[in-house]
Design a protein around this nucleic acid. Sequence first.
DNA 1: GATTTTACGTA
DNA 2: CGTACGTAAAATCT
Length: 793
Amino acid sequence: MLCRTVGPLDAKIMLIAEAPGKEEDLTGEPFMNMRAFGAGRTLNQVLTQAGISRAECLITNVARERPPGNKISFYFEDKGCTIPKPKLREWIELLKKEIILYNPNIIVALGVTALWALTGEKKVGELRGYILPCSLVPGKKVLPTYHPQHINNEWKTFYPTVMDIRKAIRHSFSGEFPVDKRILLPGVSSASFVSYMEELIQDKNKDRISLDIETNGKLPGSHITILGIASSPYSAISTQLSNLQEADELRLWQILAVLLKEKRVAMHNAPFDKGVLWYNHHILIENLWMDTLIAAHCLWPELPRDLGFVASLCLDVPPWKGTARNDSLYYNVCDAANTFGIAEVLEAELLRTGSKKTYDFESKSIDLSLMMQLQGIKCGITIRDELKKEIQEKVIEQKKKLDLLVGKDVNYNSPKQLQQLLYMDLGFPVQYKRRKSINNPKVVTTDSNALSKLSIELGDNPIFNLILDYKKNSKLISSFLDITLSSNDTVHTSYNITGTSTDDEGRKSFGRWSSSASIILPYGSGNLQNIPKAVRKMYIAPEGYSILQADYVQAEAVIVAHLCGDYKLIDMFKNAFGLPKSQRRPYDIHILTAKEMFGITDDKVTPRHREIGKTLRHALSYAAGPAVLATKLKIKLAQAKQLMTIYHQKNPQLKMWYTRIQQDLQQGRTLYNLFGRSHKFLAWWGDDLFRSGYSYIPQSTVGDLLNKAFQDVYYNVDWLTGYLQLHDALYVLCPEGREQEAMKELRKQMIIPITLRDETFYIDVDFSVGKSWGEMEEQDIDWREFDKENFGF
DNA sequence: GATTTTACGTA
DNA sequence: CGTACGTAAAATCT
């Protein structure tokens, strides 16, 4: 049936999608599929969240009949879907007439086909959220966003679509195009750039600028190729730095240095621009106005944070990210101008939402993280080479043994070849990956989990552990030993204050730093937060220094105990506080757990009992299931289930806490950690979301605690230098011989009160000292006197 | 050659 | 149905 256009004829918003589906074809109305994963229901969800109802919108499709198999390509001559067949051409004409007739103020293009029909463009991911001119009916505004069906396939596009619809609502009050008031000067001469800067320096009314650089990342140090600055959202300038006369370039850097002394500066990802300017030109940006990346992270921790995305939320500028390759000078000048505009919007938004405190806290980490990136950590090449040789020999030997056992050459790092070998040639029971949902297809796997499981089930076959060891060792070599060092034998990492990961469900980033390859100094394995213990000894202290490690003791467990109101545990933590490690045994919570679980006395607790207690507590704190517990403890599923039941009987507060978190999530899907950091969860409502919620408060509170302490050390203790950050441990370089003094100083900075409801508590700190990261000696110190003097408890 | 999948290291 | 993070090698796409 021909699908009609529905909705009030005087609607200000018109939604245009691709083509009718089955239900729509039957009823002749768009978006009638209201089943659980139907596009109609998703559309309603999006509209409701955005603050508008379906009844207020005109809704239609480009194609008016369902194509076979719902494949829109049916209506096109070509595979690329650019040349419409006559039928589709007719429908597009119809659409044109309807737009002219109903005259909406804003047209929302839902998905690629609508976007193409209205504007000739195809890149929804790049253009969504921007106001585009309509080519079908000139003069009309088009706002592209995702198709509801696409949202069902990729849930992370749900909330961006909501934001887009909100923008459409703002644009529905008038059909007028936003006026682009910007005066952009891309690619001016260095002389003009200098005079622009000089004028700015003279203009005391303007105290803020934004800055953006483009670099040629191939060289260490990231050579700057383009420099752009803006003095308002509407005035920006950029210049090319290659092929400059030496004197001109010098002049430019000199004036820039003066400008940066005078003004407060906004940047998107300040550690990079600031780092490159400092590293290459010794120009220091001292007055940060705003890092728009950090601000976006504090406001929307689960949304994309690239400048193009944030601009689509905050501004009414034309899209420009597509120009990066062809016109980098224009691209850069837009970056600079739009960063200024975004900073103004986000500044207000941070105040409005109460996220300013979190922003201030995060931005205070910039200098610390940048210092550690540029400084790097020292690698002892002799130890590195020894390790490499040793492990390489092991790998060769293991490969030989495997070849002999198997009788042919197999690449054990190839999942495909391993599947063939284990499940086809050798006929072992096929192992499947654990699925997120019962609806997901079963996926065959040969990962370490599967191999250990086979090893347990099939007892005496040495092949599994051999493969496991072989894979482990080749991983050690390829990822952690086979690395390029700087000329000073250092490796460098970029500590990312806002995290950077992008997984299927979108970005998370609970406020812990991540660590990734440094673009400025591309030496080492990149991530320094996942170096295996086995190779840590190759990282050493520079001559004359010791490495001092300070880690929070049982940090997440302490937080969980307080969140649950588990006073037996809380008392144990309190009683153990400040004690030397050697005297803590009576307050060992894992032994306590074991005693409770097995109904035994202290003297009967074996290391295995303790291990079970520890694993159980850890797994259950984050709502792990019996299957995972079974593999972790190498026991049967039934046993794991039994242990879980007993654990929950002995710890009834845990399930109550789960329930509380779920209730809290129901209120606006937002949780606050113990330092007030908010996080809005955008994932699909269900157990995955809940589990993420359970881990949020402990994980992010510990992250903030550590970073708070690290900042305090950085700003207050000038003779200790930050060396590494490992989420709940910080490492500093300490001048040899001052270790005792250093530990006292660190303890003063790190013992920080945490408040929950009316209670205040503290998390203890342990210290280790060593000449290398792998050989640290635990310090067995009684801190009780010291604590009494310094903290009064 | 670029992108996706699989696997695996840390807290 | 632990969570969070980043990277290397293999597989796959174009």
